[in-house]
């Protein structure tokens, strides 16, 4: 048990170190800004004093290392700085803090993502295991072809096909997922059906194929054959012999695809104009609102790293070989 704990702590530390380096990269974005950037934000007619004040606020007059730790400290306290938008060349500052802009959006995106995950993960595992058990059968081949095709489809195409079918030709769901203030839980659920369905279709193919591959890999191992020769029932082989060894690859699969969800929301939220953090990021990239882009990037990257790290840790903890040290 001790060695397991040590490995887990090592993984946690590795994750933290990665996050640290990623934060350096994201911070360095401001330093990489081209020289004419202040004009792009403040407009061509910006006064010299305004430009100077803006540069001072960005801290371009201080050494980079000092600025990095100041930024990091603020971020750790939840302060992502103030948005670039709303600044005018006249010097009147109508910009809002980044956190205020992000918070409601983040909640919406988490709602959408968890709704997708609750449907997609069990379904994909079930389909994957079924396909692996009936390998080369009709069901397996059908699912293989369908998933290969759906992996190749761009997310926005899947989204528009669903929109055309379920919002226009047979209008049961709204084509635009605008969350009104004061909407209750069921309203939100109803609005999020189409984006969640799109994300489910996109992620399920990957997840199902990887689950199938992992299970097939295990079914070919000698101890499964031994159990089979012993006369153990198929159900019991799966539950007692295959699944304990399959948790690690399955956890990897799930984490990988939840991480994929992180990327998927960017496109899907734009298609359905769902007010989530993905659309916020796209809008901010268009207007080059760097503080918001930085905050969104940090949130996305952090989620991604966290998911991958948890998959690693689940793989270690559930590995039966590590639980019994020699």
């Amino acid at each position: 048990m001790n060695s397991v704990l040590i490995t887990v702590i090592q993984r946690l530390l590795l994750g933290l170190i990665t996050l640290f380096f990623v934060s350096i990269i994201i911070f360095a974005m401001v330093a990489m800004l081209p020289g004419d950037f202040t004009q792009a934000v403040l407009g061509q007619a910006a006064l010299e004093e305004t430009v100077q004040a803006f540069r001072k606020e960005l801290g371009l007059d201080q050494p980079a290392v000092y600025r990095y730790f100041q930024w990091l400290g603020a971020v750790l306290q939840g302060d992502f700085g103030t948005s670039f938008s709303g600044r005018a060349s006249s010097g009147i500052d109508r910009s809002r803090p980044v956190l205020e802009l992000i918070e409601p959006r983040l909640y919406n995106t988490l709602f959408l993502a968890s709704m997708t995950a609750i449907v997609a993960v069990p379904l994909a595992l079930y389909l994957g295991i079924t396909a692996a058990l009936h390998r080369n059968g009709f069901f397996d081949r059908l699912i293989n072809t369908v998933t290969l095709v759906s992996i190749s489809l761009p997310e926005f195409l899947v989204a528009y096909v669903l929109m055309a079918l379920l919002a226009v030709l047979w209008p049961v769901f709204p084509p635009i997922s605008e969350v009104r203030p004061g909407a209750d839980f069921f309203d939100r659920l109803y609005i999020s059906v189409l984006p969640a369905l799109t994300l489910t279709m996109v992620t399920i193919a990957h997840m199902m194929r990887m689950t199938r591959a992992a299970i097939i890999n295990l079914l070919a191992s000698p101890y499964v054959e031994m159990a089979r020769l012993k006369g153990v029932a198929q159900r019991e082989i799966i539950i007692k012999h295959v699944l304990p060894n399959a948790w690690a690859p399955i956890a990897t699969v799930i984490a990988f695809n939840l991480a994929y969800l992180v990327i998927g929301v960017v496109v899907v939220e734009t298609v359905f104009t769902y007010p989530g953090i993905g659309r916020l990021m796209v809008d901010s990239v268009t207007t080059r609102d760097i503080p918001i882009v930085q905050a969104c990037g940090l949130i996305f990257a952090g989620t991604y790293i966290f998911l991958n790290m948890s998959a690693d840790i689940i793989g270690i903890v559930t590995n039966p070989r590590l639980l019994h040290p020699r």
């Binding site: 996050l19 380096f21 760097i290 991604y304």
Partner: peptide, 15 residues
């Protein structure tokens, strides 16, 4: 460690 679409978006915002 950073999803490539997110990274690409960040770099496009800068450049």
């Amino acid at each position: 460690a950073i999803p490539s679409l997110i990274f690409a978006l960040m770099l496009l915002a800068v450049f």
